[in-house]
Design a protein around this nucleic acid. Structure first.
Length: 467
DNA sequence: CCTCTGATAAACATAA
DNA sequence: CTTATGTTTATCAGAG
């Protein structure tokens, strides 16, 4: 499809340009010093402002026939010159949250920051001192003893004090334009690569860069954010996603499938997932993105059918008007729309009908227990981060006591929580689902022809499969 | 003005 | 010994 071609073209162009080595092959983390200095120097003046020509450039290079614009993460020249709006505590927080076990040595925190915010690759040297200063002074961060026999070199691991996590979230939410605005509480934990892997901030136009997520059965913040913006009709966001093969995929597929999951209460998501998979749907499953990051999970080949969630979501997007009355249709009615794809050459794997398509193997629970664990983790850990302020400690948002008046805690009670067996965790308190988002998701799903109430009824009546 | 917050610099200690 | 890491103090700018 044209999006794929456009992205391929962009990729090729960049590969052939002087930025090829740094923007496409991100494995090559050590930028070639000379060329990099040259380039950044050359571009310093050109892109300092960067906004005037931004729109035109993007239209020219990234537009697709649907009128969506695709961000320019792959264009490092746009990311070089302006300082990100995040405080050091936010940067550290994101880095730690994005790690596999939510703990990182200082060195890796540096690396994460440089990787996600190229400004710091060429920033004055003092920022690393500031990072260390922040780690030491900020109560939100605590050192973790290394495991026995663990050889990490100097220093210890740093993690976020769970008690102070809500404060960091709040601080992050206050940051203008950050991609987790209002949605971070739903960020799942324990995902390989972490929920932030594919979110970046584009300092050139001060907009969040949203990319598709990867193998996970939970609504990732990026998706929810996307949904929010789709629902709100925001036009100043640019989306793209690229799968493992470097081919563009449809974000709206993610969005629609995400909504299906998102409007499901966390304690029912596993059942919902099973049900959706029986229906031939795979919300947020088996997705990979590039952004240079190592592919985490290959997108499996699936049978295709014509009426996909992508189509529905796209229709919904085109037709969506906030005041328009919804025209709910049942999922059964939708099945009638499904016909096998004549050429089987769809870009995506989400499908609607189990009658026309070979049913997708229910794999998330049996085949991929990690995903399910993560799902529950994501549901629990971040719940109530807004209302969790009851412990209200006397300090500011990011947890820094002023002028050295601080003392560090040394408990690790969150660890025991995370070690609970999946079943027990699943039985824990249900998470509150943001009413506005649910309503919005319902509206869009209804416009897409999915009767969410029917769907919910089905879920309610669905007998437990895997417990 | 004052206070608070975050950034920055720097001195120093310590561990690898 | 060198370097990376961690702690602490001081100063400054900006926001409220």
């Amino acid at each position: 499809m044209s999006l794929s071609l456009a992205l391929e073209q962009v990729k090729m162009d960049l590969n052939n340009s002087c930025f090829g080595s740094i923007c496409i092959e991100k494995d090559d983390d050590e930028l070639k010093p000379l060329s990099w200095l040259q380039n950044s120097d050359l571009l310093k003046d050109i892109y300092l402002d960067g906004e005037d020509d931004d729109e035109e450039n993007c239209k020219e290079n990234y537009a697709d026939p649907h009128g969506y614009y695709y961000h320019d993460t792959m264009d490092p020249k746009r990311q070089m010159n302006s300082k990100p709006p995040f405080s050091f505590s936010c940067l550290i927080f994101m880095a730690i949250e994005d790690s596999l076990h939510q703990r990182l040595p200082v060195k890796d925190i540096y690396h994460w920051i440089e990787e996600h915010f190229p400004y710091y690759r060429t920033a004055p040297a003092g920022w690393k001192n500031s990072v260390r200063h922040n780690l030491s002074l900020n109560k939100c961060f605590q050192k973790v003893d290394k495991l026995r026999g663990q050889t990490l070199g100097k220093g210890s691991l740093w993690c976020v004090d769970p008690d102070y996590r809500p404060n960091l979230l709040q601080a992050l939410r206050k940051t203008p334009f950050h991609p987790y605005h209002h949605v971070l509480p739903y960020a799942p934990h324990g995902l390989q690569g972490g929920p932030l892997s594919h979110i970046a901030y584009n300092p050139a136009n001060r907009l969040p860069i949203i990319q598709s997520a990867y193998g996970s059965d939970v609504p990732l913040p990026a998706h929810i954010h996307l949904v929010e913006n789709l629902l709100s009709g925001a036009s100043n966001y640019r989306f793209s996603s690229i799968n493992a093969a470097g081919v563009g995929t449809d974000m709206e597929v993610d969005a629609a499938a995400t909504m299906m999951m998102f409007r499901t209460p966390p304690e029912k998501r596993v059942e919902q997932l099973v049900k959706l998979k029986r229906e031939g749907l795979q919300p947020l499953h088996s997705y990979t993105v590039n952004n240079g990051a190592a592919p985490l999970q290959a997108k499996p080949e699936q049978p295709h059918c014509k009426a996909t969630l992508a189509d529905l979501a796209e229709t919904a997007l085109c037709d969506y008007k906030p005041k328009r009355a919804s025209t709910p249709r049942s999922t059964a009615a939708l099945k009638a729309k499904c016909t096998p794809s004549p050429n089987g050459a769809m870009d995506h794997t989400y499908s609607l009908s189990s009658t026309m398509c070979t049913p997708v193997v229910i794999g998330a629970l049996e085949d991929d227990p990690v995903d399910c664990e993560m799902e529950s983790d994501g549901s629990m850990d971040d719940s109530d981060s807004d209302s969790d302020q009851t412990e209200s400690k006397s300090f500011n948002d990011s947890g820094v006591f002023s002028k050295g008046n601080f003392n560090k805690r040394c408990s690790d009670d969150s660890e025991s929580e995370r070690q609970l067996p999946l079943k027990k965790r699943l039985k824990k308190k249900p998470k509150h689902v943001e009413p506005d988002l649910v309503e919005g998701a319902d509206a869009l799903l209804n416009l897409a022809g999915i009767n969410t109430q029917d769907c919910q009824d089905s879920i309610d009546n669905l007998s437990p499969v895997s417990r």
